[in-house]
Design a protein around this nucleic acid. Structure first.
Lengths: 244, 244
DNA sequence: CCGATAGTTTTGTATGATAAATGCCGCGAA
DNA sequence: TTCGCGGCATTTATCATACAAAACTATCGG
């Protein structure tokens, strides 16, 4: 379709989460994840947070409610807000994951994520081979095509790679697998930073991905498992190459 | 240590989440999970919720912020609160899981959870066998002992069973496995309801659990994997027996 | 020594007012 | 007619303030 004139520059386009209470949530969340307030400890009370961030108690409370929703905190009258034990934290939450990543050594973080991928993705591939719908298979193939047409080591490549693996998870048709998508997103983003900064990159990326699609399309669970395992082996190999 | 006299009965002991804003969050959350407000749809505005539940706008807003934190909603001025696509939902969140369970056919729900267990637990067992600390092993053994001393088909048995599997997850020493614990809790709770109501129960429960502990203690990853797989096979066998 | 009770601190809820974001409509010009 | 621009209306976002409820602490009386 013909592209008309550029629309006049819209308002500063502040991103969706940059309201006061969101920044408060991020500010407090980061301090929890980085250990400033360890599990079991008490946070400053609402009035104090308000002073620290120059915000009203209302905004502070809404931020804290958000963190409640992520399992980081519980609040009680007269006590205050106490940091929950780590096993209650929703580590797979998008925000929590981001705060966590910022507070951790990048390589350690990445290795942990890869370990999870090695456990989950082969199993997901088996299910996908057994029950992917034609539409889900099409999405997978499309992501593969995008990878093949993207420049190596580009943002577009990473984006297509992420789409590929999310599509594989979705094709397994078990909704409880979906939340783990964030692990893949973070791992690939982190991996991208790593490979570019260390000037190494997985050589076999495209053929290995193609192999996965082939196995799923052929409805061969075991072949799909092997293909995904090979893919992860290659990635880990690359990672290992950056160990100094 | 010597147990002193029972403390006088404390105040009604309303449970932590029964404040107005929590009930609002649950009320709205359930309506989202059960499909009353499907992904992409707009919720009533804050004032309307306030009337529906007879609460102030403040309480409504805090409830909505909690749901924001769980990835169910995003709110924008002039638009309102829109239900996020399912892949953004934190399905592994405790509350979301509970609302979800209430909105779904119990058997379907349970089968999905078991499927996840079959993917994750064997992998977790391998890691546990490789790197469980003495303390973590002790917790595992203690849970097993509790199971052995509990009456069959009792609440205590389920509780000890949950502790056992959570301990196994923890022993894998990868914190991203921990959020998955909720799947185990729900699966076992759901399973308990099932086995009692259908008058069937896994016969091999205790020896199979003991086998897992043995393998982990012996630091035999492959044996641990096999033991956990056998355990899950037995559970699934029981479940299959209830298919009418 | 125990137990009830009053006091104090902190979160929980309500109310009302104002700011900011943004979809929508209508007016006017090319 | 069509397009752009400005104002209007609606809804969330934020603030300020007041009071209620919860729960720990200390105190006082038996």
């Amino acid at each position: 379709m013909s592209q008309r004139r550029m629309k006049p520059v819209r308002a500063p386009q502040r991103k969706p989460g940059s309201r006061v209470h969101s920044e408060l949530a991020a500010g407090i969340g980061r301090r929890i994840l980085d250990g400033t307030y360890p599990p079991g400890s008490l946070l400053p009370n609402e009035a104090e947070w308000g002073q620290i961030f120059g915000a009203s108690r209302t905004a502070v409370r809404e931020a804290i409610k958000t963190l409640n929703g992520k399992g980081l905190l519980v609040s009680r009258p007269k006590i205050g807000s106490r940091v929950e034990p780590r096993e209650r934290w929703n580590l797979l939450d998008r925000d929590v994951m981001a705060w966590h990543r910022a507070a951790l050594d990048e390589r350690t973080f990445l290795l942990s994520l890869q370990e999870i991928r090695r456990i989950l993705e082969p199993g997901a591939a088996v299910l996908a081979a057994e029950r992917a719908s034609p539409e889900q298979l099409a999405v997978l193939e499309e992501a593969l095509a995008d990878m093949q047409s993207a420049a190596v080591e580009s943002e577009a490549m990473v984006a297509a790679d992420v789409r590929f693996h999310l599509a594989l998870l979705a094709a397994a048709n078990n909704e409880f697998l979906v939340p783990f998508g964030i692990v893949i997103e973070q791992a690939l983003a982190s991996m991208f930073a790593y490979t570019t900064s260390h000037a190494v990159h997985p050589e076999q990326l495209l053929p290995l991905h193609a192999e996965v699609v082939k196995a799923v399309a052929a409805r061969s669970p075991e072949a799909a498992r092997r293909a995904v395992t090979a893919l992860l082996d290659d990635t880990d190999e690359t990672l290992r190459a950056t160990a100094e």
